[in-house]
């Protein structure tokens, strides 16, 4: 049984079509990456999954049932726009949110999560005295107490230092190991690549990618060369079969045109300078994202719309 199943879902606001005939399936127990540029309809889709918005057309099934208020008990939700009662104390706030969703006293679980995310010492502090990272971890706890069957996290790592981000990542993966399905909306392609079992990209209200990282990359073939060399990116101009060069600093990423031969590129480079590394690979998720949503996306959007 899929944890979430959207079928032909459309949502409009006045003249604006925020989500257009979207169908997707979130496998149970997976970490499902939900990516897309700003304004593409991710938040609207998430709000329909958590029953904040109702679709104009199509159906939203969550945990095997049509979405309804009783299901929210099993859905943990961390919205992108964070908000907490600033004058409440941390423990009281978490117990309030936990009891509101779960319907029972959650003080034990709150205590455990505070320990786990290194916030026990802040339990009696007011929210408005916490740092941004601390508030974010508190809000994460509010989403996972009591333990949800479906956890929806919208940009959970924004603003976190590496230590806090690691503890949060560990917590998310821990929940997944215990069977919780996680929908992770993110702009961080590295997070999507490393954490997600399944990735879906939405662009201008329509689904443009859907599958595992491997299957998505497979669609684009091995058309990418990552190279590092002495002399910098200026030496990469005019290489045979290279469509686009992306300078990443220490490494440059070359996108090959269809049917071109990487060996010719390597030979040309060696003639120009000293090559310290050269790898032919599949495109990164970042690259795929930019190909879809970057400059020139108009054409693709039209193609998608006409399909």
């Amino acid at each position: 049984m899929p944890a979430v199943e959207l079928t032909g879902v459309t949502k409009t606001f006045g003249e604006v079509v925020a989500v257009n005939d979207l169908s997707l399936t979130v496998p149970e127990g997976s970490v499902f990456g939900f990516i897309g540029p700003n304004g593409s309809g991710k938040t609207t889709t998430i709000r329909m999954i958590v029953n904040i918005f109702y679709p104009d057309r199509g159906s939203v099934r969550v945990l095997g049932s049509e979405i309804n208020p009783s299901l929210t008990r099993w859905i943990g939700y961390l919205p992108e726009e964070r908000g907490l009662y600033r004058k409440m104390k941390v423990r009281a706030l978490l117990e309030f949110f936990g009891e509101l969703r779960g319907g029972h006293n959650v003080s034990r679980e709150v205590g455990e999560w505070l320990e786990r995310l290194d916030l026990a010492h802040c339990a009696d502090r007011r929210i408005d005295t916490l740092s941004k990272g601390m508030s974010q971890r508190v809000q994460f706890i509010a989403a996972v107490v009591p333990e949800p069957k479906l956890l929806i996290l919208d940009e959970p790592f924004t603003g976190l230092d590496p230590v806090s981000a690691d503890s949060l990542r560990e917590a998310i993966l821990g929940l997944r190991r215990k069977g919780t399905t996680v929908i992770l909306s993110t702009h961080d392609m590295t997070v999507a690549e490393t954490m997600c079992d399944h990735i879906c990209m939405i662009f201008r209200g329509r689904k443009v990618l859907d599958g595992t990282l491997e299957s998505i990359q497979g669609e684009y073939g091995t058309d990418t060369i990552r190279v590092s060399l002495s002399g910098g990116p200026a030496l990469l101009e005019g290489l045979p079969g290279v469509e686009k060069v992306r300078d990443l600093g220490q490494v440059q990423e070359l996108r090959m045109s269809a049917g071109s031969d990487p060996q010719l590129v390597l030979r040309a480079l060696v003639e120009r300078t000293r090559v310290t590394s050269f790898a032919v690979s599949k495109p990164s998720l970042h690259d795929i994202f930019v190909r879809i949503a970057g400059p020139g996306a108009e054409t693709l959007a039209e193609e998608v719309a006409s399909e």
């Binding site: 958590v50 929210t72 859905i75 919205p79 907490l84 509101l100």
Partner: peptide, 16 residues
């Protein structure tokens, strides 16, 4: 104030 502090979206995940 609660709207500006973005509290409602968190609450609306649980309550109508």
């Amino acid at each position: 104030e609660d709207k500006n502090q973005r509290i409602f979206e968190m609450l609306m995940g649980v309550a109508s």
